[in-house]
Design a protein around this nucleic acid. Structure first.
Length: 125
DNA sequence: CTGATGACGGTGC
DNA sequence: GGCACCGCCATCA
């Protein structure tokens, strides 16, 4: 199980109709940075796990948009088909479509208290 | 071993 | 909001 597999496992938990940012995923995995999440997903669709059940399209950047790259257009389409709405500026409304995080079982397995989770995700004290 | 290469994010202007 | 800068590190040739 390499580093990227842990990322894939988490990404698989994001349900249809919701999206998460690279940073959200990274914050839940110690020693993982937002870039690594991007790098891990870069292979998908460009090649790596050619056949995948990983919902790579549900990970977008923290400003609520999709970074320009070959294939970005396809990502927009898939997300819209899942009910995600993009404004004219190409941004989502985080408050409506933000993934609420992994289930308690996952947090417990990682030894993360719910309070810590809130702190990690929302910067609460 | 070394170096290039990638879907980013926070901070400060 | 936009832009420049910096830190991030697994993977592969």
């Amino acid at each position: 199980m390499n580093k990227y597999d842990a990322i894939y496992e988490l990404v698989r938990m994001v349900p249809s109709g919701k999206v998460a940012s690279y940073g959200m995923i990274a914050n839940l995995l110690s020693g993982t940075t937002p870039r690594m999440v991007g790098f891990a997903l870069a292979g998908i669709g460009a090649g790596v796990p050619a056949d995948t059940d990983i919902p790579w399209q549900r990970i977008i950047n923290s400003s609520g948009g999709i970074s320009p790259r070959p294939g970005a257009e396809r990502q927009y389409k898939i997300l819209e088909s899942e009910g995600i709405h993009f404004s004219k500026g190409g941004k989502v409304a985080w408050k409506d479509v933000r993934w609420q995080g992994p289930d308690e079982a996952w947090l417990e397995r990682r030894g993360i208290e719910f309070h810590d989770f809130l702190s990690i995700q929302f910067g609460w004290p």
